[in-house]
Design a binder for these strands. Structure first.
Lengths: 226, 226
DNA sequence: GGCGAAATAATACGTTTGGGTGATTTTATT
DNA sequence: AATAAAATCACCCAAACGTATTATTTCGCC
């Protein structure tokens, strides 16, 4: 063989799975399964006993395991062997698990029911470019998580926060709207005609590209232009 | 033609790109490009002028644009048309841009040099299952971002926050209301009658002691019972 | 003095919402 | 099996809202 195969390790507590994956992955030209382990401890033990050249470059790591689960294993493994790529395999797309695994340093995240050819592609990609393969459902979850997350480093640089160029009056009226006042109530409070408030709101909607109070509130609060 | 094609929109400020993508995507059996826009404003205007059945289900959105960039366009678009999927296209995998786009509500993120067949696959997947396609390099970035991120843990303490005892369904509907959906839109989304949504909202109002959407939003966000 | 941008206001029309009342069906819980 | 609590849906009515168009007034500013 001219092309050196990618050495791969498999960690799964069900021996049936280990066999299945080993068989199927070895079927590929580009991959050689060089290690199988039954849990996190087993995996770390074996890694310690191998020396560098034989060590797997990519680990398929089952997330749910009895003894020492995939997350803990990755956490330890990443520190000991930073160049080894960890590809998590899971049946569930559970938010917490995904987040934990990512924080632990997982390099990719696939659902177990993924086609074997996809998994092979991901392993190759991971070992060649270090990029992160991800099942779409997982990607969706990470996006959801990111959307809820707050990145600490957002000091000043990023205040992208679009300027919708609302006038003072418009801002005032928008604020009252967010406070739950109706046209009439705002009109009374500002000694204006209800029609005027309505007109202002219409202008505001145009500027914010929305079509209702609720939507305007959403945009306004999200961009803190109140 | 038996299979209904997926209506797709393209937003890019370079006319050359619009033409290129239109041509290539229309080549696919499953896709029909039904709209092209030169920037965010143009896109929103065109969307407003179309009614539901003709509207694109998936938008290919260029991130870097002169007039109103892809991020702002997604932010507004997602609120106005929550069911439309936005697939961001970019040449750079710039951290901040990615994060901004995700927070704005992008559904997927691809590099522009992706193969056209990949893009087509992603569009189909996105429209069928709503899952998130992502170029591996982008996925890598989101993982890096997530690793640095802190998920806001809402402990206890600071707020009195009394319990309004909303049912699960009520909470769900309240959440959608806060997201700017009308009765009708919520009804469609949950496969219920508009009257049912109205009834739920009425019950919610009673429980929160309010009389309008805006007020309900205020109470709900203040007590973060969403 | 006049130009332009906000602010003010009216009118008109169709749609959405809020309020009330009542009824049927599901889904727990005992 | 009996009951209670949610969830579902319908109908009516009036008020509030969203959109469009047009017009007058005010105010800063060159």
């Amino acid at each position: 063989m001219t092309i050196p195969k990618i050495p791969v390790g498999i960690v799964d507590d069900k021996s049936q799975n280990r066999l299945l994956f080993t068989e199927r992955l070895n079927f590929s030209e580009e991959i050689a399964v060089v290690m199988t382990a039954a849990d996190g401890k087993d995996f770390l033990d074996q890694m310690k006993r191998m020396d560098f050249p034989q060590r797997p470059a990519v680990i398929l790591m089952d997330v749910e395991m009895a003894e020492m689960d995939g997350i803990a294993a990755v956490q330890a493994g990443k520190i000991l062997y930073p160049d080894v790529r960890f590809l998590m395999l899971t049946v569930f797309d559970d938010d917490d698990k995904i987040f934990e695994a990512i924080k632990a340093g997982a390099d990719g995240y696939l659902l177990k029911n993924e086609k074997i050819s996809t998994i092979i592609d991901c392993i190759v990609q991971l070992s060649e470019s270090g990029s992160a393969p991800m099942s779409p459902r997982i990607a969706r979850k990470t996006l959801d998580l990111l959307m809820k997350a707050s990145i600490p480093k957002m000091e000043e640089g990023n205040k992208e926060r679009h300027d919708y160029e609302l006038s003072d009056r418009e801002t005032e009226i928008l604020k009252l709207t967010i406070d739950g006042y109706s046209y009439r109530q705002i009109a009374e409070r500002l000694f204006l005609s209800g029609n005027t408030i309505k007109k202002h709101l219409a202008n505001i909607y145009h500027k914010l590209h929305v079509t209702s109070k609720a939507q305007a509130i959403k945009i306004a609060t999200r961009n803190r232009l109140i």
